[in-house]
C-alpha cells in the first residue's frame, strides 16, 4: 500500500551567516540578505526530509511531497529536498505571503494539505531558524485534528501506526501513534543526506506544482496576523572582554584561574 508523506519546508535566510554580516533594515523591519548568501531550506526541515527518505529507503512504495508557503522562492534552494530524493514539490506561492505569522501559515498549510491529501504522515522540522517560534507543525495538528508527536529522532512505520523515539531533556520517550499523524523532527535523527548527481539531475527536470490563494479558497483577510511586528533590531552589546595573557599558554591558563579567584568567581 502506498504511503504518502508530506514534509513541510520553509525557505529562510542562511542561519550560518556570521554575526558580523547579519544586518537589519529597521525601516522595513526585515533582514538584509548579505550579498551572495542565497537563502536555504530551513535545516530542521531537511532533517524531516531525511526522516521521510529513511522510510522510503526501506519501503519503495513511499511517496514524498515537499510543501512550502511563501513568496520569492529561490528554486536552487527549494529543490534541494527533491535532489535528496523527494518526489514532488508543492508551493503555495503568492506575493501576499511574504510576511505571515504562524497562525496564517497554519491556515495555508492546512488548506493545501486538505487539497493535496490525504497523507499518512505530516512531517515538519522542530522549528524554523528565522522566527524560532516552533509553532507551525504543532498548530497544524490541532487544526487538522490529528495526533501530534514533537521532537522525533527515530521513526518506523508498522502497518497503521508509527513507532517513535521522542527527544526529552535527559533522554527519550518511546511512543506509538496511529496514522495519520503529525510529527516534528529534530536534528538528533541524523544529518540530512547530500544530494548525488543523479538526484540533482532529476530535481532539475521536476517542476514545482503551484497553488494560489484562490486555489485554496482563501482570501487575504483570512491571513490577518495576530502578532504585529513593531520593531526588529540587533541588540547592542557593550561587553568588553578582558584578555588574560601570560608568558606562554600554560602561564595564561594559570593566570586565568588566579584572576577568576580574585573576582571571587571560583
Amino acid at each position: 500500500m502506498k504511503v504518502r508523506i508530506v514534509v513541510l519546508a520553509k525557505q529562510v535566510p542562511d542561519p550560518e551567516t556570521p554575526p558580523s554580516q547579519f544586518k537589519i533594515d529597521e525601516s522595513s523591519n526585515s533582514v538584509i540578505t548579505p550579498n551572495g548568501v542565497p537563502p536555504v531550506v530551513n535545516g530542521f526541515d531537511l532533517n524531516a526530509v531525511e526522516a521521510a527518505l529513511l522510510l522510503k529507503d526501506s519501503d519503495a512504495d513511499v511517496e514524498i511531497t515537499v510543501l512550502s508557503v511563501g513568496s520569492d522562492f529561490v528554486m536552487d534552494a527549494m529543490k534541494k529536498p527533491l535532489a535528496m530524493g523527494a518526489d514532488r514539490l508543492v508551493l503555495v506561492a503568492d506575493e501576499l505571503l511574504d510576511k505571515l505569522d504562524s497562525s496564517a501559515t497554519v491556515k495555508l498549510l492546512a488548506a493545501a494539505i486538505q487539497k493535496d491529501g490525504p497523507f499518512d504522515l505530516i512531517l515538519g522540522g522542530r522549528q524554523a531558524s528565522d522566527w524560532d517560534q516552533a509553532h507551525v507543525t504543532l498548530g497544524l495538528s490541532e487544526v487538522l485534528g490529528l495526533p501530534l508527536v514533537s521532537l522525533v529522532k527515530k521513526l518506523e512505520i508498522n502497518g497503521d501506526s508509527v513507532s517513535l523515539q521522542r527527544l526529552i531533556p535527559d533522554g527519550y520517550q518511546a511512543i506509538t501513534a496511529p496514522i495519520p499523524a503529525v510529527l516534528t523532527v529534530t536534528n538528533e535523527l541524523g544529518e540530512p543526506r547530500y544530494p548525488n548527481l543523479r538526484g540533482i539531475m532529476q530535481a532539475s527536470r521536476k517542476k514545482p506544482e503551484i497553488f494560489s490563494l484562490d486555489d485554496l479558497g482563501l482570501s487575504p483577510e483570512d491571513l490577518t496576523p495576530k502578532l504585529e511586528l513593531k520593531k526588529l533590531y540587533v541588540p547592542e552589546s557593550n561587553k568588553q572582554v578582558e584578555l588574560i595573557e601570560g608568558e606562554d599558554e600554560a602561564d595564561s591558563g594559570k593566570k586565568l584561574a588566579l584572576r577568576l579567584r580574585e573576582e571571587k568567581l571560583i
Binding site: 578582558e242 595564561s252 591558563g253 594559570k254 586565568l256 577568576l260
Partner: peptide
C-alpha cells in the same frame, strides 16, 4: 565571536591552556 560575549578570555590552544588552569583551580580549591 565568543570574545565579544565573554568577560574573560584566553587566546590560544586549549590543550596547552587547560592543564595549568585545572591544576591552579585545584590548588585554589
Amino acid at each position: 565571536n565568543i570574545f565579544k560575549e565573554a568577560r574573560f578570555g584566553v587566546v590560544g590552544d586549549w590543550e596547552k591552556i587547560l592543564p595549568s588552569f585545572i591544576a591552579t583551580v585545584r590548588e585554589l580549591k
